[in-house]
Design a protein around this nucleic acid. Structure first.
Lengths: 222, 222
DNA sequence: CGTATCTTGTGAATGTTTTCACAAGGTGTT
DNA sequence: AACACCTTGTGAAAACATTCACAAGATACG
Protein backbone atom coordinates (compact mmCIF):
# COMPACT_ATOMS: atom_id res chain seq x y z
CA UNK A 1 0.00 0.00 0.00
CA UNK A 2 2.36 2.63 1.19
CA UNK A 3 5.67 2.21 -0.54
CA UNK A 4 8.40 4.13 1.15
CA UNK A 5 11.09 2.61 -0.98
CA UNK A 6 9.94 4.16 -4.24
CA UNK A 7 9.97 7.64 -2.82
CA UNK A 8 13.72 7.30 -2.52
CA UNK A 9 14.02 8.36 -6.12
CA UNK A 10 12.66 11.83 -5.83
CA UNK A 11 12.25 13.43 -9.19
CA UNK A 12 14.55 16.42 -9.61
CA UNK A 13 14.34 20.05 -10.70
CA UNK A 14 11.64 20.16 -13.37
CA UNK A 15 8.94 18.29 -11.55
CA UNK A 16 9.08 19.81 -8.09
CA UNK A 17 5.81 18.87 -6.49
CA UNK A 18 3.16 21.56 -6.62
CA UNK A 19 0.50 21.18 -3.99
CA UNK A 20 -3.10 20.70 -4.94
CA UNK A 21 -4.10 23.83 -3.07
CA UNK A 22 -1.52 25.87 -4.94
CA UNK A 23 -2.96 24.66 -8.25
CA UNK A 24 -6.44 25.54 -7.07
CA UNK A 25 -5.29 29.06 -6.29
CA UNK A 26 -3.60 29.41 -9.66
CA UNK A 27 -6.88 28.57 -11.27
CA UNK A 28 -8.54 31.29 -9.23
CA UNK A 29 -5.88 33.83 -10.13
CA UNK A 30 -6.45 32.96 -13.76
CA UNK A 31 -10.12 33.72 -13.39
CA UNK A 32 -9.39 37.03 -11.73
CA UNK A 33 -6.97 37.93 -14.48
CA UNK A 34 -9.56 37.20 -17.13
CA UNK A 35 -11.93 39.49 -15.33
CA UNK A 36 -9.35 42.24 -14.99
CA UNK A 37 -8.38 41.79 -18.62
CA UNK A 38 -11.93 42.07 -19.87
CA UNK A 39 -12.21 45.33 -17.95
CA UNK A 40 -9.15 46.61 -19.73
CA UNK A 41 -6.94 46.62 -16.64
CA UNK A 42 -3.30 46.48 -17.63
CA UNK A 43 -1.47 45.64 -14.45
CA UNK A 44 -2.41 43.99 -11.19
CA UNK A 45 -0.57 43.65 -7.90
CA UNK A 46 -0.21 40.58 -5.74
CA UNK A 47 -2.19 42.54 -3.19
CA UNK A 48 -5.16 42.91 -5.50
CA UNK A 49 -5.07 39.29 -6.59
CA UNK A 50 -4.95 38.28 -2.95
CA UNK A 51 -7.77 40.53 -1.89
CA UNK A 52 -10.06 39.30 -4.62
CA UNK A 53 -8.96 35.71 -4.44
CA UNK A 54 -9.36 35.38 -0.71
CA UNK A 55 -5.73 34.91 0.20
CA UNK A 56 -2.64 36.96 1.06
CA UNK A 57 -0.25 38.87 -1.14
CA UNK A 58 2.69 36.79 0.05
CA UNK A 59 0.83 33.65 -0.87
CA UNK A 60 0.15 34.93 -4.37
CA UNK A 61 3.79 35.78 -4.88
CA UNK A 62 4.95 32.43 -3.53
CA UNK A 63 2.53 30.58 -5.77
CA UNK A 64 3.65 32.43 -8.86
CA UNK A 65 7.31 32.17 -7.96
CA UNK A 66 7.01 28.39 -8.18
CA UNK A 67 6.96 28.86 -11.93
CA UNK A 68 9.03 31.95 -12.59
CA UNK A 69 9.26 35.68 -12.06
CA UNK A 70 6.44 37.29 -13.91
CA UNK A 71 6.14 40.60 -12.12
CA UNK A 72 7.84 43.96 -12.26
CA UNK A 73 8.95 45.40 -8.93
CA UNK A 74 7.15 48.57 -8.09
CA UNK A 75 4.50 47.88 -10.71
CA UNK A 76 2.93 44.50 -10.28
CA UNK A 77 2.06 41.97 -12.96
CA UNK A 78 1.12 42.72 -16.54
CA UNK A 79 -2.39 41.29 -16.80
CA UNK A 80 -2.11 40.02 -20.36
CA UNK A 81 1.25 38.48 -19.85
CA UNK A 82 0.43 36.73 -16.60
CA UNK A 83 -2.77 35.50 -18.18
CA UNK A 84 -0.80 33.83 -20.95
CA UNK A 85 1.69 32.38 -18.51
CA UNK A 86 -0.94 30.95 -16.22
CA UNK A 87 -2.83 29.44 -19.10
CA UNK A 88 0.30 27.72 -20.23
CA UNK A 89 1.20 26.56 -16.73
CA UNK A 90 -2.23 25.09 -16.18
CA UNK A 91 -2.25 23.46 -19.59
CA UNK A 92 -5.03 25.62 -20.94
CA UNK A 93 -3.18 26.73 -24.03
CA UNK A 94 -4.74 23.80 -25.82
CA UNK A 95 -8.13 22.18 -25.78
CA UNK A 96 -9.02 19.00 -23.93
CA UNK A 97 -11.18 16.15 -25.07
CA UNK A 98 -13.73 15.29 -22.42
CA UNK A 99 -16.25 12.48 -22.16
CA UNK A 100 -19.21 12.39 -19.86
CA UNK A 101 -20.27 9.07 -18.42
CA UNK A 102 -23.77 9.09 -17.03
CA UNK A 103 -26.45 11.21 -18.65
CA UNK A 104 -28.41 12.10 -15.53
CA UNK A 105 -29.18 15.41 -13.93
CA UNK A 106 -25.62 16.24 -13.03
CA UNK A 107 -24.41 15.41 -16.48
CA UNK A 108 -27.16 17.55 -17.88
CA UNK A 109 -26.03 20.49 -15.79
CA UNK A 110 -22.50 20.05 -17.08
CA UNK A 111 -23.46 19.80 -20.72
CA UNK A 112 -25.28 23.07 -20.58
CA UNK A 113 -22.56 24.78 -18.65
CA UNK A 114 -21.04 27.10 -21.21
CA UNK A 115 -17.95 27.92 -19.16
CA UNK A 116 -16.72 24.47 -19.91
CA UNK A 117 -16.57 24.80 -23.65
CA UNK A 118 -15.36 28.35 -23.32
CA UNK A 119 -12.32 27.22 -21.44
CA UNK A 120 -11.36 24.56 -23.92
CA UNK A 121 -12.98 21.54 -22.34
CA UNK A 122 -14.86 20.01 -25.24
CA UNK A 123 -17.37 17.30 -24.58
CA UNK A 124 -16.74 14.76 -27.31
CA UNK A 125 -18.93 11.91 -26.11
CA UNK A 126 -21.70 11.10 -23.66
CA UNK A 127 -22.49 7.60 -22.42
CA UNK A 128 -25.31 5.98 -20.53
CA UNK A 129 -26.54 2.47 -19.82
CA UNK A 130 -30.24 3.29 -20.02
CA UNK A 131 -31.58 1.98 -23.36
CA UNK A 132 -34.22 4.70 -23.31
CA UNK A 133 -31.57 7.40 -23.24
CA UNK A 134 -29.18 5.88 -25.75
CA UNK A 135 -29.70 7.52 -29.11
CA UNK A 136 -31.28 10.67 -27.73
CA UNK A 137 -29.41 13.81 -28.48
CA UNK A 138 -27.95 15.89 -25.76
CA UNK A 139 -26.72 19.31 -26.66
CA UNK A 140 -24.53 18.69 -29.66
CA UNK A 141 -24.00 15.03 -28.72
CA UNK A 142 -25.92 11.84 -29.10
CA UNK A 143 -25.95 9.60 -26.05
CA UNK A 144 -23.93 6.50 -26.75
CA UNK A 145 -24.36 3.03 -25.40
CA UNK A 146 -22.18 2.42 -22.43
CA UNK A 147 -21.11 -0.90 -23.93
CA UNK A 148 -19.15 0.97 -26.57
CA UNK A 149 -17.37 3.12 -24.05
CA UNK A 150 -13.89 1.57 -24.13
CA UNK A 151 -13.85 1.68 -27.89
CA UNK A 152 -14.99 5.26 -28.19
CA UNK A 153 -12.77 6.58 -25.40
CA UNK A 154 -9.75 5.21 -27.19
CA UNK A 155 -10.90 6.17 -30.68
CA UNK A 156 -11.69 9.74 -29.75
CA UNK A 157 -8.56 10.03 -27.67
CA UNK A 158 -10.40 11.29 -24.65
CA UNK A 159 -8.21 13.10 -22.13
CA UNK A 160 -10.59 13.57 -19.24
CA UNK A 161 -13.65 11.64 -18.12
CA UNK A 162 -16.37 13.22 -16.05
CA UNK A 163 -18.03 10.50 -14.03
CA UNK A 164 -21.64 11.13 -13.11
CA UNK A 165 -22.99 7.66 -12.45
CA UNK A 166 -24.60 6.17 -9.34
CA UNK A 167 -22.24 5.38 -6.47
CA UNK A 168 -22.53 1.63 -6.81
CA UNK A 169 -21.50 1.67 -10.45
CA UNK A 170 -18.68 4.16 -10.11
CA UNK A 171 -15.75 1.89 -9.32
CA UNK A 172 -16.52 -0.54 -12.12
CA UNK A 173 -16.87 2.27 -14.63
CA UNK A 174 -13.65 3.81 -13.37
CA UNK A 175 -11.75 0.60 -13.93
CA UNK A 176 -13.00 0.43 -17.50
CA UNK A 177 -12.18 4.08 -18.10
CA UNK A 178 -8.67 3.65 -16.77
CA UNK A 179 -8.11 0.52 -18.81
CA UNK A 180 -9.04 2.50 -21.92
CA UNK A 181 -6.08 4.74 -21.31
CA UNK A 182 -7.74 7.77 -19.78
CA UNK A 183 -5.69 9.23 -16.97
CA UNK A 184 -7.78 12.04 -15.56
CA UNK A 185 -11.17 11.67 -13.92
CA UNK A 186 -13.54 14.13 -12.33
CA UNK A 187 -15.78 12.10 -10.07
CA UNK A 188 -19.21 13.26 -8.96
CA UNK A 189 -20.27 9.96 -7.42
CA UNK A 190 -20.25 9.88 -3.63
CA UNK A 191 -17.58 7.21 -3.36
CA UNK A 192 -13.88 7.16 -2.85
CA UNK A 193 -12.53 5.69 -6.07
CA UNK A 194 -9.36 3.66 -6.33
CA UNK A 195 -7.21 4.49 -9.30
CA UNK A 196 -3.74 3.31 -10.18
CA UNK A 197 -0.71 5.52 -9.69
CA UNK A 198 -0.45 8.00 -12.53
CA UNK A 199 -4.17 8.58 -12.90
CA UNK A 200 -5.35 11.97 -11.65
CA UNK A 201 -8.59 12.04 -9.76
CA UNK A 202 -10.63 14.90 -8.39
CA UNK A 203 -13.79 14.50 -6.41
CA UNK A 204 -16.80 16.74 -6.23
CA UNK A 205 -18.84 15.48 -3.34
CA UNK A 206 -21.80 17.58 -2.33
CA UNK A 207 -22.72 15.47 0.65
CA UNK A 208 -19.25 15.86 2.12
CA UNK A 209 -19.48 19.62 1.68
CA UNK A 210 -22.91 19.81 3.24
CA UNK A 211 -21.76 17.74 6.18
CA UNK A 212 -18.82 20.08 6.56
CA UNK A 213 -21.26 22.96 6.87
CA UNK A 214 -23.36 21.01 9.37
CA UNK A 215 -20.22 20.47 11.40
CA UNK A 216 -19.37 24.16 11.42
CA UNK A 217 -22.86 25.11 12.48
CA UNK A 218 -22.87 22.48 15.18
CA UNK A 219 -19.53 23.26 16.68
CA UNK A 220 -20.28 26.97 16.72
CA UNK A 221 -23.20 26.46 19.04
CA UNK A 222 -21.00 24.30 21.26
CA UNK B 1 -19.77 9.47 35.87
CA UNK B 2 -18.39 8.25 32.64
CA UNK B 3 -20.88 10.36 30.83
CA UNK B 4 -19.85 13.52 32.57
CA UNK B 5 -16.19 12.97 31.91
CA UNK B 6 -16.85 12.35 28.27
CA UNK B 7 -18.96 15.41 27.72
CA UNK B 8 -16.33 17.58 29.28
CA UNK B 9 -13.73 16.22 27.02
CA UNK B 10 -15.88 16.75 23.99
CA UNK B 11 -16.67 20.30 24.98
CA UNK B 12 -13.00 21.04 25.57
CA UNK B 13 -11.98 19.76 22.27
CA UNK B 14 -14.64 21.49 20.31
CA UNK B 15 -12.98 24.75 21.04
CA UNK B 16 -9.81 23.43 19.40
CA UNK B 17 -9.75 24.12 15.71
CA UNK B 18 -10.47 21.12 13.54
CA UNK B 19 -9.07 21.40 10.05
CA UNK B 20 -11.30 21.36 7.05
CA UNK B 21 -9.57 18.31 5.66
CA UNK B 22 -10.09 16.42 8.90
CA UNK B 23 -13.81 17.17 8.74
CA UNK B 24 -13.91 16.00 5.15
CA UNK B 25 -12.35 12.73 6.16
CA UNK B 26 -14.77 12.26 9.04
CA UNK B 27 -17.57 12.59 6.55
CA UNK B 28 -15.97 9.88 4.46
CA UNK B 29 -15.51 7.59 7.44
CA UNK B 30 -19.16 8.08 8.23
CA UNK B 31 -20.10 6.93 4.78
CA UNK B 32 -17.88 3.87 5.04
CA UNK B 33 -19.39 3.02 8.40
CA UNK B 34 -22.88 3.22 6.97
CA UNK B 35 -21.82 0.84 4.26
CA UNK B 36 -20.22 -1.55 6.73
CA UNK B 37 -23.24 -1.33 8.97
CA UNK B 38 -25.67 -2.11 6.21
CA UNK B 39 -23.61 -5.21 5.45
CA UNK B 40 -23.92 -6.29 9.04
CA UNK B 41 -20.27 -5.75 9.89
CA UNK B 42 -19.83 -5.27 13.62
CA UNK B 43 -16.33 -3.94 14.00
CA UNK B 44 -13.89 -2.14 11.77
CA UNK B 45 -10.22 -1.31 12.16
CA UNK B 46 -8.48 1.97 11.45
CA UNK B 47 -6.62 0.03 8.80
CA UNK B 48 -9.81 -0.90 6.98
CA UNK B 49 -11.24 2.59 7.23
CA UNK B 50 -7.97 3.93 5.87
CA UNK B 51 -7.78 1.47 3.03
CA UNK B 52 -11.30 2.16 1.89
CA UNK B 53 -11.18 5.87 2.57
CA UNK B 54 -7.94 6.50 0.74
CA UNK B 55 -5.80 7.49 3.70
CA UNK B 56 -3.59 5.89 6.35
CA UNK B 57 -4.48 4.07 9.54
CA UNK B 58 -2.57 6.58 11.64
CA UNK B 59 -4.52 9.40 10.05
CA UNK B 60 -7.81 7.73 10.85
CA UNK B 61 -6.82 7.26 14.47
CA UNK B 62 -5.59 10.83 14.79
CA UNK B 63 -8.77 12.19 13.26
CA UNK B 64 -10.97 10.22 15.62
CA UNK B 65 -8.81 10.97 18.62
CA UNK B 66 -9.60 14.66 18.15
CA UNK B 67 -13.00 13.86 19.57
CA UNK B 68 -12.48 10.99 21.97
CA UNK B 69 -11.43 7.35 22.23
CA UNK B 70 -13.96 5.28 20.46
CA UNK B 71 -12.01 2.12 19.72
CA UNK B 72 -11.01 -1.03 21.57
CA UNK B 73 -7.36 -2.01 21.39
CA UNK B 74 -6.87 -5.27 19.67
CA UNK B 75 -10.34 -5.15 18.19
CA UNK B 76 -11.01 -1.95 16.33
CA UNK B 77 -14.11 0.22 16.41
CA UNK B 78 -17.67 -0.96 16.99
CA UNK B 79 -19.40 0.04 13.75
CA UNK B 80 -22.73 1.01 15.29
CA UNK B 81 -21.20 3.00 18.08
CA UNK B 82 -18.74 4.89 15.94
CA UNK B 83 -21.54 5.59 13.50
CA UNK B 84 -23.57 7.26 16.23
CA UNK B 85 -20.59 9.19 17.52
CA UNK B 86 -19.64 10.49 14.11
CA UNK B 87 -23.17 11.51 13.34
CA UNK B 88 -23.24 13.48 16.54
CA UNK B 89 -19.84 15.03 15.94
CA UNK B 90 -20.79 16.13 12.45
CA UNK B 91 -24.14 17.46 13.63
CA UNK B 92 -26.15 14.90 11.72
CA UNK B 93 -28.19 13.75 14.68
CA UNK B 94 -30.75 16.36 13.69
CA UNK B 95 -32.16 17.60 10.42
CA UNK B 96 -31.16 20.79 8.65
CA UNK B 97 -33.33 23.29 6.87
CA UNK B 98 -31.92 24.05 3.45
CA UNK B 99 -32.92 26.59 0.82
CA UNK B 100 -31.91 26.52 -2.79
CA UNK B 101 -31.33 29.80 -4.55
CA UNK B 102 -31.32 29.48 -8.33
CA UNK B 103 -33.58 26.96 -10.00
CA UNK B 104 -31.33 26.12 -12.91
CA UNK B 105 -29.76 22.87 -13.98
CA UNK B 106 -27.53 22.50 -10.98
CA UNK B 107 -30.36 23.20 -8.62
CA UNK B 108 -32.41 20.67 -10.47
CA UNK B 109 -29.74 18.04 -9.99
CA UNK B 110 -29.67 18.77 -6.28
CA UNK B 111 -33.40 18.64 -5.80
CA UNK B 112 -33.61 15.21 -7.30
CA UNK B 113 -30.62 13.94 -5.38
CA UNK B 114 -32.15 11.63 -2.84
CA UNK B 115 -29.04 11.32 -0.70
CA UNK B 116 -29.67 14.82 0.48
CA UNK B 117 -33.02 14.24 2.05
CA UNK B 118 -31.86 10.87 3.31
CA UNK B 119 -29.12 12.49 5.31
CA UNK B 120 -31.35 15.03 6.94
CA UNK B 121 -30.86 17.96 4.60
CA UNK B 122 -34.40 19.03 3.83
CA UNK B 123 -35.01 21.49 1.07
CA UNK B 124 -37.58 23.88 2.48
CA UNK B 125 -37.61 26.54 -0.22
CA UNK B 126 -36.47 27.22 -3.76
CA UNK B 127 -36.01 30.70 -5.22
CA UNK B 128 -35.49 32.11 -8.66
CA UNK B 129 -35.69 35.52 -10.33
CA UNK B 130 -37.13 34.28 -13.61
CA UNK B 131 -40.84 35.17 -13.69
CA UNK B 132 -41.46 32.18 -15.92
CA UNK B 133 -40.11 29.82 -13.31
CA UNK B 134 -41.73 31.39 -10.27
CA UNK B 135 -44.83 29.45 -9.35
CA UNK B 136 -43.77 26.27 -11.10
CA UNK B 137 -43.45 23.30 -8.84
CA UNK B 138 -40.16 21.61 -8.36
CA UNK B 139 -40.12 18.30 -6.63
CA UNK B 140 -42.17 18.93 -3.53
CA UNK B 141 -41.54 22.68 -3.67
CA UNK B 142 -42.95 25.60 -5.55
CA UNK B 143 -40.40 28.04 -6.89
CA UNK B 144 -40.66 31.30 -5.00
CA UNK B 145 -39.97 34.79 -6.18
CA UNK B 146 -36.48 35.88 -5.33
CA UNK B 147 -37.87 39.16 -4.01
CA UNK B 148 -39.37 37.33 -1.07
CA UNK B 149 -36.14 35.59 -0.21
CA UNK B 150 -35.13 37.50 2.91
CA UNK B 151 -38.57 37.11 4.38
CA UNK B 152 -38.85 33.40 3.71
CA UNK B 153 -35.32 32.58 4.80
CA UNK B 154 -36.02 34.12 8.17
CA UNK B 155 -39.53 32.77 8.49
CA UNK B 156 -38.57 29.22 7.69
CA UNK B 157 -35.45 29.45 9.82
CA UNK B 158 -33.21 28.23 7.07
CA UNK B 159 -29.86 26.88 8.27
CA UNK B 160 -28.03 26.37 5.02
CA UNK B 161 -28.34 28.03 1.63
CA UNK B 162 -27.25 26.32 -1.54
CA UNK B 163 -26.30 28.98 -4.04
CA UNK B 164 -26.70 28.02 -7.67
CA UNK B 165 -26.99 31.36 -9.44
CA UNK B 166 -24.88 32.89 -12.22
CA UNK B 167 -21.47 34.17 -11.18
CA UNK B 168 -22.32 37.81 -11.61
CA UNK B 169 -25.28 37.62 -9.27
CA UNK B 170 -23.64 35.51 -6.61
CA UNK B 171 -22.11 38.16 -4.38
CA UNK B 172 -25.25 40.25 -4.20
CA UNK B 173 -27.38 37.23 -3.37
CA UNK B 174 -24.84 36.16 -0.76
CA UNK B 175 -25.04 39.52 0.96
CA UNK B 176 -28.80 39.27 1.15
CA UNK B 177 -28.65 35.70 2.40
CA UNK B 178 -26.19 36.62 5.12
CA UNK B 179 -28.21 39.62 6.17
CA UNK B 180 -31.20 37.31 6.62
CA UNK B 181 -29.31 35.48 9.31
CA UNK B 182 -28.16 32.40 7.41
CA UNK B 183 -24.64 31.42 8.36
CA UNK B 184 -23.80 28.51 6.11
CA UNK B 185 -23.55 28.61 2.35
CA UNK B 186 -22.67 26.04 -0.26
CA UNK B 187 -21.63 27.96 -3.34
CA UNK B 188 -21.74 26.53 -6.84
CA UNK B 189 -21.08 29.78 -8.64
CA UNK B 190 -17.59 30.15 -10.06
CA UNK B 191 -16.65 33.14 -7.90
CA UNK B 192 -14.82 33.67 -4.69
CA UNK B 193 -17.47 35.01 -2.36
CA UNK B 194 -16.79 37.36 0.52
CA UNK B 195 -18.65 36.56 3.69
CA UNK B 196 -18.34 38.05 7.13
CA UNK B 197 -16.54 36.24 9.92
CA UNK B 198 -18.76 33.60 11.42
CA UNK B 199 -20.39 32.55 8.17
CA UNK B 200 -19.28 29.16 6.87
CA UNK B 201 -18.72 28.88 3.18
CA UNK B 202 -17.87 25.92 1.00
CA UNK B 203 -17.26 26.11 -2.69
CA UNK B 204 -17.92 23.57 -5.37
CA UNK B 205 -16.15 24.81 -8.44
CA UNK B 206 -16.09 22.47 -11.37
CA UNK B 207 -13.91 24.66 -13.52
CA UNK B 208 -11.24 24.78 -10.86
CA UNK B 209 -11.31 21.00 -10.60
CA UNK B 210 -11.11 20.53 -14.35
CA UNK B 211 -8.21 22.93 -14.55
CA UNK B 212 -6.50 20.99 -11.80
CA UNK B 213 -6.79 17.89 -13.94
CA UNK B 214 -5.49 19.74 -16.98
CA UNK B 215 -2.51 20.80 -14.90
CA UNK B 216 -1.75 17.26 -13.80
CA UNK B 217 -1.96 15.99 -17.35
CA UNK B 218 0.23 18.80 -18.59
CA UNK B 219 2.95 18.59 -15.99
CA UNK B 220 3.20 14.84 -16.39
CA UNK B 221 4.23 15.12 -19.99
CA UNK B 222 7.06 17.53 -19.39
C1' DC C 1 20.06 63.46 -10.09
C1' DG C 2 18.16 62.35 -5.70
C1' DT C 3 14.71 61.02 -3.05
C1' DA C 4 10.19 59.08 -1.95
C1' DT C 5 7.28 55.46 -2.96
C1' DC C 6 5.85 51.01 -4.91
C1' DT C 7 5.85 46.18 -5.16
C1' DT C 8 8.25 41.98 -6.32
C1' DG C 9 10.86 37.73 -5.12
C1' DT C 10 12.60 35.01 -1.59
C1' DG C 11 15.16 33.15 2.46
C1' DA C 12 13.94 32.39 7.18
C1' DA C 13 10.53 31.85 10.72
C1' DT C 14 6.39 30.12 12.04
C1' DG C 15 2.40 27.30 11.92
C1' DT C 16 -0.15 23.16 10.57
C1' DT C 17 -0.80 18.44 9.12
C1' DT C 18 0.77 13.98 8.49
C1' DT C 19 3.49 10.13 9.59
C1' DC C 20 6.18 7.31 12.74
C1' DA C 21 6.80 4.29 16.33
C1' DC C 22 5.66 2.14 20.38
C1' DA C 23 3.58 1.45 25.08
C1' DA C 24 -0.74 0.00 26.71
C1' DG C 25 -4.63 -2.68 26.64
C1' DG C 26 -7.35 -6.22 24.78
C1' DT C 27 -8.38 -11.19 22.71
C1' DG C 28 -7.60 -16.06 21.92
C1' DT C 29 -5.09 -20.36 22.57
C1' DT C 30 -2.84 -23.84 24.90
C1' DA D 1 -1.47 -18.44 33.58
C1' DA D 2 1.58 -17.53 30.18
C1' DC D 3 2.24 -16.41 25.55
C1' DA D 4 1.35 -14.80 20.90
C1' DC D 5 -1.00 -11.52 18.43
C1' DC D 6 -3.93 -7.49 17.38
C1' DT D 7 -5.00 -2.73 17.16
C1' DT D 8 -5.68 1.60 19.52
C1' DG D 9 -4.17 6.18 21.20
C1' DT D 10 -0.65 9.40 21.28
C1' DG D 11 3.75 11.96 22.02
C1' DA D 12 7.54 13.09 19.03
C1' DA D 13 9.49 13.71 14.49
C1' DA D 14 9.11 14.85 9.86
C1' DA D 15 6.99 16.93 6.07
C1' DC D 16 4.51 20.48 4.24
C1' DA D 17 2.30 25.10 3.82
C1' DT D 18 1.86 29.83 5.05
C1' DT D 19 3.42 34.17 6.69
C1' DC D 20 7.00 37.50 7.71
C1' DA D 21 10.20 40.75 6.60
C1' DC D 22 13.28 42.99 3.84
C1' DA D 23 16.76 43.77 0.04
C1' DA D 24 16.47 44.92 -4.59
C1' DG D 25 14.56 46.69 -8.76
C1' DA D 26 11.37 49.84 -10.87
C1' DT D 27 8.83 54.31 -11.37
C1' DA D 28 7.59 59.24 -10.60
C1' DC D 29 8.58 63.72 -9.83
C1' DG D 30 10.65 67.93 -8.19
Amino acid sequence: MRDVAKKERVADERSAKISESAVRRLSIYLRLLQEADSLGQETISSEELAERGGTTAAQVRKDLSLFGSFGKRGLGYAVGELLRELREILGLDRSWRVALVGAGKIGSALISYRNFQLRGFNIEAVFDTDPEKVGQSWGADTILNDARMELVLAEKEIDIVVLAVPADAAQAVTDRVVSSGVSAILNFAPVRLRVPEGVSLRNVDMVVEMEGLAFSLTSELR
